[in-house]
Design a protein around this nucleic acid. Structure first.
Length: 393
RNA sequence: GCGCCCUUCGUCUAUCGGUUAGGACGACAGCCUUUCACGUUGUAAAGACGGGUUCGACUCCCGUAGGGCGCACCA
């Protein structure tokens, strides 16, 4: 997805919410897309919602305005749609709910669970630098936690920090990770409201999940620490903590975090390479989740079998060879009409495809359909299918 | 640096104390095929290391090594 825009999916009755991991790429010309890892998270959310008869809610986490553009959001929605993942109701804009987030920040302030902090960004940087130099954990030192607000320096707009408990521990009961314990002293007082009055992610998520009635959260493990901080906020508000599942990340073939240099990050790149949504769904499902020895299964079967507890803990490497093999299988087993339709739908996204599309009239179409049976035997992707059909033009 | 998590064939994984450690992709070899592809048969290929617990550990515990994630007025 585009830098900083996050879809979250949730189900209702039994609902869940997916917070796709962020991308932090701020290219000169930001291009939004649905990250392949986020796509798998969305797939898990979707499968769980379908399996339990719940609802999947989609929320665009766009509280960082500078990183959110309409184009980026549209790209995410388009990616979800292409992959065949539907959501219930309209996508909710987190930014639009900022007023309510501020309201909760005030509630926390009033109940003594939060306080104003007058440290400047420079002071904070210095604090971090010092801690690093002294090889101490990098945390906010609590300067304003118990300090008298009367001592506040003039002309400084304060942020609001959550007063995190300093004793005891916060326990996450996670369907994939098991029971994870954080000592409260490891969690510092995070900022929940910026000095410009805008809420911060961890506050917004808790408020929205609560208000939207989210019962199940399924997201990447990169949110595990956030789960602890968010749990503290839920508790401070007296709200029920949702059931959580943190799924392991997808790595590149070399074992390092999946990144640009590995090639395809966004699902639209997979579409452009000629992979079928059904094949990608099947492949993604097998990354971190399994149902015995089953390798090739329909989406309906996945829905029937899907349990959150079936999700593993270790990260998986993305294997293009296996995806390609699966895709070839799906192509071969598709009937000619459906395959031709898939090819036609693919053409706009490949080089020279649109021109080719323009040349296809009724006669050409009939010719192509006749050729499908022979062509599909040796095509692993729609791109190869297109190349195989070149002799007809 | 601090915290949390991970570690079964090259890769994705099964196993939930007792198996000849199974499947899939990939690799290699045979068959089929004019060729390729498909299909099919077979082969090689794994419990990171070191301690425990136990009659018995891949499975439970501790340590080591390696890896990942997190530690923003980002999400």
């Amino acid at each position: 997805m585009l830098s900083g825009t996050f879809p979250t999916t949730s189900l209702q009755g039994k609902r869940c919410s997916c917070h796709c991991p962020s991308l932090h790429a701020l290219p000169p010309r930001p291009t939004g897309y649905l990250h392949i890892g986020g796509a798998r998270t969305a797939l898990f959310n979707w499968a769980f919602a379908k399996h339990t008869g719940g609802k999947m809610l989609l929320r665009i986490e766009d509280t960082d305005r500078e990183r959110s553009t309409d184009a980026a959001i549209d790209a995410i929605l388009a990616g979800m749609t292409w992959l065949g993942l539907s959501w219930d109701g309209d996508a909710v804009s987190q930014h639009a709910r900022a007023g309510r987030h501020r309201e909760v920040a005030q509630l926390l302030l009033a109940s003594g669970h939060a306080y104003h902090c007058y440290c400047s960004p420079q002071e904070l940087d210095a604090m971090r630098a010092k801690a690093e130099a002294e090889k101490r954990p990098i945390r906010y030192d609590g300067t304003w936690r118990d300090r008298d607000p009367a001592e506040a320096p003039a002309g400084i707009k304060p942020v609001i920090r959550f007063k995190s408990p300093q004793e005891g521990e916060t326990i996450i009961k996670d369907n994939a990770q098991g029971r994870v314990v954080f000592a409260n002293k490891e969690l510092d007082d995070l900022i929940i409201l910026r000095s410009d009055g805008n809420p911060t992610y961890n506050l917004s998520v808790v408020v929205d999940d609560h208000d939207m009635g989210v019962t199940h959260i399924v997201r990447g493990v990169d949110h595990l620490t956030n789960a602890a901080r968010q749990t503290q906020i839920y508790l401070a508000m007296g709200w029920t903590v949702p059931d959580m599942t943190h799924v392991p990340l997808i790595h590149g073939p070399d074992g390092a975090k999946l990144s640009k240099r590995h090639g395809a990050l966004g699902v639209e790149a997979y579409r452009a390479m000629g992979y079928l949504p059904a094949a990608l769904r099947n492949y993604l499902a097998r990354l971190g989740w399994s149902h015995g020895d089953d390798e090739i299964f329909s989406t309906q079967q996945m829905v029937d079998w899907f349990e959150l507890t079936g999700i593993g803990k270790s990260p998986a490497r993305f294997d293009f060879a296996k995806l390609e093999n699966l895709n070839g299988h799906y192509i071969r087993h598709m009937d000619d009409d459906a395959l031709l339709d898939a090819l036609l739908a693919f053409l706009p996204y490949t080089e020279g495809g649109p021109e080719l599309l323009g040349k296809i009239d009724v006669a050409k179409r009939a010719q192509l359909k006749m050729a499908m049976a022979g062509l599909k035997e040796r095509a692993k992707t729609l791109l190869e299918l297109k190349i195989g059909a070149n002799y007809l033009f």
